[in-house]
Design a protein around this nucleic acid. Structure first.
Lengths: 145, 145
DNA sequence: CCTTGACCCTGTAGCGGCCACAGGGTCCAT
DNA sequence: ATGGACCCTGTGGCCGCTACAGGGTCAAGG
């Protein structure tokens, strides 16, 4: 007797704050198992899907790629394994985030410089424009008629 | 007499550190003007293209979108206009960068927490896994048989 | 003069991570 | 029976390239 509760894709979407299309997408790319279907060919999800999708969404919010999410899910399923592998994925991701922050901070610095130099004159004397069109790249061009 | 120098797409690519395909792409999407062609249908670039592409690349390095780059180019061409519009584009971009930094810093914080809690036991007791599968989202699910 | 190999051309498909249709089917309340 | 809210599949689009495939062009060397 299949007395388990089940709910539609729309319900699952609402419960997890995910768009319906995204859920179908997750199924296609294999981060969410394909659920049973009703007689009318509707997807019928159970509690395990809700759990799974919550995990996926949370990991995505934390910036993990879908590939990483797949890895994490697989790792998380192996309940008796040591969790070093999970830890490693997280650390790698943290490093990536830190690199990105550093890059963006450098960018911020450059942009602030740029903007700070603007004297609000005409474009012809605009430092921003000048900074964007720098003294050309490596030489070696003008030798080919 | 068209005595101007001209050079190939490969030369332009080398000089600006851009891939050949990217240059053709820029032409397609209208951030780099289509150059003259040689009798053999090769693109023949001049100094103005080098200047233009340098500008584009520099702006891209600074994280401006191609749409913004198009705007900046058009603004930069109007040499006698006041440069407020340029300034505005730059400021908007800076704000975006700052928002992104803030987001990533919040992320970093969460990730550090996550990782800091790992006791290197089994997956079953791993805090990372637990943190990723949180107490379900908004209620209102299990009421539909 | 002919071949070789480096370059160039166009066009198309793919990446990630979805989102937004179009064109249909299903289900439930009225 | 009908309307409207939902569901289905499939396709195309977004950004900013990148990577082919399948050809053409050109200069140097034999």
């Amino acid at each position: 007797m299949p007395s388990e509760i089940s709910f539609s894709i729309g319900d699952l979407a609402k419960a997890t704050g995910t768009k319906v299309e995204t859920i179908r997408w997750y199924e296609r790319v294999g981060v969410l198992a394909a659920p049973e279907r009703t007689s009318g060919n509707y997807r019928a999800y159970g509690a395990e899907h809700l759990e799974r999708l919550s995990f996926v969404r949370r990991a995505r919010d934390l910036g993990f790629s879908l590939d990483q999410v797949r890895d994490l899910l697989q790792l998380a399923d192996d309940r008796n394994q040591p969790c070093d592998a999970v830890d490693r994925v997280a650390r790698e991701h943290l490093e990536k985030v830190e690199r990105k922050i550093a890059d963006l901070e450098a960018l911020r610095h450059e942009l602030r410089d740029l903007i700070g130099q603007c004297r609000h004159g005409t474009v012809a004397e605009c430092r921003i424009v000048q900074a964007l069109s720098p003294q050309f790249g490596p030489a070696g061009i003008s030798r080919r008629a």
